[in-house]
Amino acid sequence: MDMNYKPNPEYLVEVNNLKMYFPVKTGFFGTTPLKAADGVSFAIRPGETLGLVGESGCGKTTVGRALIRLYKPTDGDIFFEGKRVDDKSIGGLRKDMQMVFQDPYSSLNPRMTVEDIIGEPLDVHKMYTSRADRRDQILSLMEMVGLNAEHATRYAHEFSGGQRQRIGIARALATKPKFIVCDEAVSALDVSIQAQVINMFEDLQRQLGVAYLFIAHDLLVVHHISHRIAVMYLGKLVETADSDELNANPVHPYTQSLLSAVPLPDPRTAKSSKRIILEGDVPSPLKMPSGCPFRTRCRFATEQCAKEMPQLTDRGNGHMVACWNK
């Protein structure tokens, strides 16, 4: 932890050098730290969306959960509105930071009605004056996410995946947070429903001015909703840039391969753009390659890549890339 780190007051959320190591049993006695997030830094302005993309297992969920302190980070500084987030301050910040989960099935308690699920944050923070007030708040939340108010007394298992995700979003909105971590909030949904839910996220942002950390493994989904995008690989950020800039001008070899994997709507452009097929698998986070984490799969790898770890450097206009040869 860097006690002298000065957060920038412009940012709503600021993460500096976040490290999250999980002790993993290897062999009979020893444990090895699994570096799920290793030196991640980024910042989000009020009302802004930062997209976080990367293959599954690269540590996106870990970053999101450490950020709202579901995990206690191994190292690093997290600031919310310039205030350091730690065990002491988190209690007072719970109202302002919320999360929407990936799995629409396991994220809602099967023994609770929709009303009680959405009302739980209100109950915890005692945010109502009377039962009627509580109900009014819940109904207006349901309306906000496009749920039928008549269904307030129903149980979650009676709803479809998309509707369940809306219930989860209403729950996250209940305390009027300024920041929501959306961890693959649309990945489990059908493509047509994905679009509806993403549009709803955008509408809610326009109405409420809430900021998102929008996690997904699909660059296309993230491009649509994000102002800025951070690309993650094996626990590290490899490139961050404005959303359009990143799509038009990807610099890091990993980002390029991610973008080339996105199906293009127009067959003519699709033909002319060469797809970069990544060879090999993602290395195990327990056996991290030396130097650049991407070098085992990189076409441009040189000797230097194996020796030294590239740091994020600014390539102009806030386009940050961690690569020696690009």
Binding site: R65, I68, K95, Q98, F101, S106, S107, N109, P121, R171
Partner: peptide
């Protein structure tokens, strides 16, 4: 405990006693 609704309750600020009782 693995279920995301328990995490959601923690994110909402619910204490252990409430999580045990309600979830």
């Amino acid at each position: 405990k693995q279920n995301e609704y328990v995490l959601a309750a923690q994110v909402s600020g619910a204490k252990s006693s409430r999580i045990i009782r309600r979830h």
